[in-house]
Amino acid sequence: MAFDSCLQVLLIEKDAEKAQKMINALDPEKYSVTHLSSGSAVFLRLVEEYQPDLILMDVESPDRDIVESLSVMSAANPKPVVMFSQNEDTDTINSLVKSGVSAYIVGDVDPTRVRTIIEIALARFDEHQQLKNELASTQQQLTKQKTVEQAKIWLMETKGLTEKEAYSLLRKNAMDMSQTIEHVAKNILSVATMLDM
């Protein structure tokens, strides 16, 4: 598609004048802005339909809780959020940024700065998501290893097998039943728990 490189931005702002300022600051060649004056159900539908690359909103907007809920309560993937604020001083913003918000734009809307902040926010968000995914997969891997390890120990203790034999038994069962070793290990452990009761 022709607009593939164009960033989809969802702007939430009830003040039309402020919204226009923000839209003007964004290069139309690079950003395609959908403006919404308020959140609620319509907003959720829009996020799901358009899959925006970025949400832009005022930090004092009551709609912030809707945005916050997206990653927990809806099927939509988490989105980077850039918040603007006109009342806070730079120190304030720095502390808020450190506390986990994607990014803040302070004071008057200056086109060059807005672009830089958005780019940094997107980069940071990707980095953060990547870390989160890596962490999740590492944790999953660890649980998997732990389950297999426990099942092996149980087999060794109750059947008098060596570690190698226990592992071979797990693998053989997994192959025979076309299941993963982890799955077989889980089944063994649940039986083991029952027998130990």
Partner: peptide
């Protein structure tokens, strides 16, 4: 105006 911003402000000592 929102629970999320209230929380962030507490976290950030504001």
């Amino acid at each position: 105006n929102s629970w999320a911003t209230l929380r962030d402000k507490l976290h950030a000592n504001l």
